[in-house]
Each structure stands twice: as C-alpha cells, then as structure tokens.
C-alpha cells in the first residue's frame, strides 16, 4: 500500500465515517454555540457594568457586581465551569448552557476592565455636551460614549474573543461534546493521534483568524470615521 493510500484511509477512518462525522459536526456546533452566546453574554454584561460604573446613582449595585466578576476572573476557567456545573446548578442544567454562563461571566471580568478604561477616556466633555442637549444618562452612554469607546477598544476585545474561543475547549470537562472532546473520542476509537490533533489545531487557528477578520470588517464599516 502506497503512503498516499495510507493517508486516504486514515482521513476516511478519522473524519469521514458516519460516527466520526457525527461527532465532529456535533462538537463543532457546540463549540460555536458556546462561543457565540458566551461572547454576547460577556459583551452585554461588560457594557452594563461599565454603564453602572460611570453612573454615581448606581454605585451600590456596581460595587458588588464588579467585585464578583473580578474575583471570578482569578479562578481558572475550567475550575469555574466545573464549579458552575456541579455545585451551582447541581448538574441539573444542560452543559452547553452552563458553559455559556460560566465562560460569559469569566470573560466579563476582563472585558469590564477594558470597557471601563476606554469609556473613561472618552471624556467628561462629551458627557456634558449630551447632558446639555437633554439626553438621559442611558442615551448618552448608548449613543455618544459607547460608540466612541468601542472604536478604541476593538483590538483588545478581539483578543478577549480569541481567549474565549480557546476556553470553549474546557466544555469537555463537564461532559459536553465540544470540538476537542469529539476529536479526542475519534483518537480513542481509531488510535490515531497526529491527524485528529492536527485537524483540531487548524480548525481553531482558522476560527481565530475568522474572528479577527470579522471584527476588522466591523471596524472598517462602522468605526473608521477619522
């Protein structure tokens, strides 16, 4: 058997049998779902916390929430995920949902700091200009402050999104079939190591590149006004 036929057979055995295909597609779907909703949750929570931070009226709520996400961020993501799954929700909630919540809250820890710094940099003057025109604090934040802050913080947010993508690989620890778990199952079944790991590495690299590209296009489309 030539080396070419050998490779063909390995590829078929690892990725193209019904079982392998089912595992990979299921894992890939779970990884994407956890990443997408985790990112949305983290972005919403971080922008909400940053809004509370600049509003003196809401400091009583901001302080405990900030303390909570800042403390949680110092715990390894995988431990946090297991803690949420086995302790907080007693294994009663779907692992994908728990992964979304745990990774969303975990990423909020860093995103909140990024949002806070960049929102503060926009400056008091813009806030006062908004006040003089009669905007409510929420309108000022949403229409004036946040869009300006997003422009400068986008590169850092992209970095955090890539961290979040890599952290989705921990979902396997709470019995979830994510991409890594799926490839690992194939490795066990076929006893091939190289191809499954090469495949998953390349896929993560591609997804990471794709995230960078999407955010770059967003930046060009909406934030290249000067």
């Amino acid at each position: 058997m030539s080396w070419f036929q050998d490779w063909q057979e390995q590829i078929y055995r690892n990725f193209l049998t019904d079982d392998a295909l089912h595992l990979i597609l299921g894992g890939f779907q779970n990884t994407l779902v956890i990443f997408f909703f985790g990112a949305v949750l983290a972005l919403i929570l971080a922008s909400f916390l940053a809004y509370l931070h600049i509003n003196h009226k809401w400091q009583w709520l901001y302080r405990p929430l900030h303390w909570f996400v800042a403390t949680i961020h110092d715990v390894p993501a995988v431990v946090l995920m297991m803690f949420f799954y086995y302790v907080v929700f007693w294994g009663a909630l779907n692992g994908v949902i728990v992964s979304i919540i745990a990774l969303g809250v975990y990423t909020t820890g860093t995103l909140e700091k990024i949002f806070k710094i960049h929102i503060t940099q926009v400056g008091k003057e813009q806030y006062e200009a908004g006040r003089m025109l009669g905007f409510t604090p929420w309108q000022i934040y949403r229409l004036i402050i946040l869009p300006q802050a997003v422009k400068s913080m986008l590169p850092l947010v992209i970095g955090e999104m890539k961290v979040l993508l890599r952290a989705t690989s921990y979902a396997g620890y709470i019995a979830q079939k994510d991409l890594v778990k799926a490839v690992d199952s194939i490795r066990v079944q076929t006893e091939d190591v190289f191809l499954p790991l090469l495949f998953v590495s390349l896929l993560y690299l591609f997804l990471s590149w794709l995230i960078g590209k999407v955010f770059h296009l967003l930046h060009v489309k909406f934030f290249s006004y000067d």
Binding site: Q126, A129, F223
Partner: peptide
C-alpha cells in the same frame, strides 16, 4: 431650553 457652546467644541466625532 439652554444651549451651551463649549471651549473644546465637543461635537460627536463618530
């Protein structure tokens, strides 16, 4: 109903 023009102008750059 009071309009204010600032020294730093403060238009919304975006």
């Amino acid at each position: 109903h009071i309009g204010m023009v600032f020294q730093n102008i403060n238009l919304f750059p975006h």
